Amino acid sequence: MSKKILVVEDTEDNRQILRDLLGMAGYDMVEAHDGAEGVARAAEHKPDLILMDIQMPVMDGYEATRRIKANPELAAIPVIAVTSYALSGDEEKARAAGCDGYIAKPYSPRQMLAKVREILK
């Protein structure tokens, strides 16, 4: 049974890149277009991993991660922040919100798959 990854990302091009990358690596992908939808999809699908964009409409990735981690049924799901915010202190802010990992955009496909495999091992 392949692992299910929830991608919470508001940009279609970024979702398409991850759709191709994760699909070729044998993962099942569920998509959400904003943080609020991400929280709902996490509860609905109970994925093995969540890749969370930070800057999104409706609800940002920090708040979405806090809500997911506050739900006892979802709290153990690892969340990786995937963000173009790569300034000093941004990784700490993501981890403070509950993220288990951090990848700055742009990332290499190899870097993304290595992080996904590391978390899912």
Rank of each mutant, 00 (worst) to 15 (best):
M1G: 13
S2E: 00
S2M: 02
K3S: 05
K4T: 12
L6T: 08
L6N: 11
V7H: 09
V8D: 05
E9T: 08
E9Q: 08
E9W: 05
E9V: 07
D10K: 12
D10L: 07
T11M: 14
R15S: 09
Q16Y: 14
I17E: 00
L18N: 06
R19Y: 01
D20M: 12
D20G: 08
L22W: 04
M24A: 09
A25P: 02
G26C: 07
V30Q: 08
E31T: 10
E31A: 11
A32K: 09
H33M: 10
D34I: 08
D34V: 10
G35V: 04
G35L: 05
A36E: 13
E37Q: 15
E37T: 12
G38D: 10
V39D: 08
V39W: 04
A40S: 13
A40K: 14
R41H: 11
R41K: 13
R41W: 06
A43G: 15
K46M: 13
K46H: 15
K46D: 03
P47L: 13
D48H: 12
I50E: 02
L51C: 11
L51W: 08
M52E: 03
M52G: 04
D53C: 09
I54Q: 05
Q55E: 13
Q55H: 12
M56V: 10
M56F: 10
P57F: 09
P57Y: 07
V58H: 07
M59L: 12
M59P: 03
D60C: 02
Y62N: 08
E63Y: 00
E63C: 01
A64S: 10
R66D: 11
R67C: 02
I68R: 12
A70D: 12
N71C: 08
P72K: 09
E73V: 04
E73M: 05
L74F: 05
L74W: 08
A76M: 01
I77S: 02
I77G: 02
I77P: 01
I77W: 06
P78F: 13
P78M: 12
I80N: 10
I80A: 09
A81W: 06
A81S: 06
V82F: 04
V82M: 06
Y85M: 14
L87E: 06
L87I: 02
L87M: 15
L87S: 07
E91C: 06
E91H: 10
E92H: 04
A94E: 01
R95S: 03
R95K: 15
R95P: 09
A96K: 13
A96M: 12
A97S: 14
D100G: 11
D100K: 03
G101D: 10
G101T: 02
G101V: 07
Y102H: 03
A104F: 02
A104V: 07
K105A: 00
S108P: 01
S108R: 15
S108N: 06
P109D: 07
R110K: 15
M112K: 05
M112E: 03
M112R: 07
A114F: 06
K115T: 14
V116Y: 00
R117S: 13
R117E: 15
E118H: 09
L120K: 01
